[in-house]
Amino acid sequence: MEKFVTLTGVAAPMPIMNIDTDMIIPKQYLKTIRRTGLGKGLFSEMRYLDDGSENPEFVLNKPAYRNAKILVAGDNFGCGSSREHAPWALLDFGVRAVISTSFADIFYNNCFKNGILPIQVTQADLDKLMDDATRGANATLTIDLAAQEIRGPDGGVVKFDIDPFRKHCLLEGLDDIGLTLQKKTAIDAFEAKSAAARPWA
Rank of each mutant, 00 (worst) to 15 (best):
A64Y: 00
I116W: 01
M23N: 11
L91V: 10
C79Y: 04
G155D: 02
D22Q: 09
T101S: 12
K27Y: 07
F58G: 05
R135Q: 15
A104H: 09
Q28G: 10
T32F: 00
L49Y: 01
F93G: 00
H168I: 10
N61C: 04
K183A: 13
P164I: 06
T21Q: 10
T101M: 10
G41H: 03
L179F: 11
G173E: 03
R135I: 00
T122C: 10
G78H: 07
Y65M: 01
T32S: 15
R151W: 00
L49F: 02
F190N: 12
R35F: 05
H168R: 14
W200C: 07
N55V: 00
F160W: 02
F165V: 15
L60P: 01
G9L: 02
N109S: 14
G41T: 03
D161T: 12
R166M: 09
D127W: 11
L7C: 03
T101V: 14
T134Y: 09
V10K: 03
P56V: 07
M1Q: 12
Y65G: 06
E2V: 13
N110M: 01
D105R: 11
Q148N: 13
I143T: 06
D105I: 08
E172G: 05
I33T: 12
D75Q: 13
D176H: 07
L171D: 03
I19T: 15
S194I: 02
P13R: 01
R198N: 15
R34H: 13
I16V: 13
K3V: 11
D131Y: 12
A97W: 05
A12N: 03
D175H: 10
P13S: 02
N55R: 02
L141T: 06
S102N: 06
R34C: 07
A68I: 09
V72I: 15
A64F: 03
T36F: 08
G37Y: 03
A73F: 05
I16Q: 11
K193T: 15
S44M: 09
G80I: 06
D163A: 00
K40T: 15
D20V: 12
I33S: 11
G115E: 04
P164Q: 06
T142S: 04
M17S: 13
E45D: 14
S82F: 08
I116V: 12
A124K: 14
I177G: 11
K167L: 08
F190V: 12
K159A: 14
R34D: 12
T185G: 13
I106K: 07
M1I: 13
L126C: 07
S82C: 09
I19A: 06
A11L: 05
I143K: 00
T21W: 04
T8C: 01
G173S: 06
I143Y: 01
T122A: 10
G41L: 01
T101Q: 06
G115T: 07
Q123F: 10
M23W: 07
E172K: 15
P118W: 10
K167G: 10
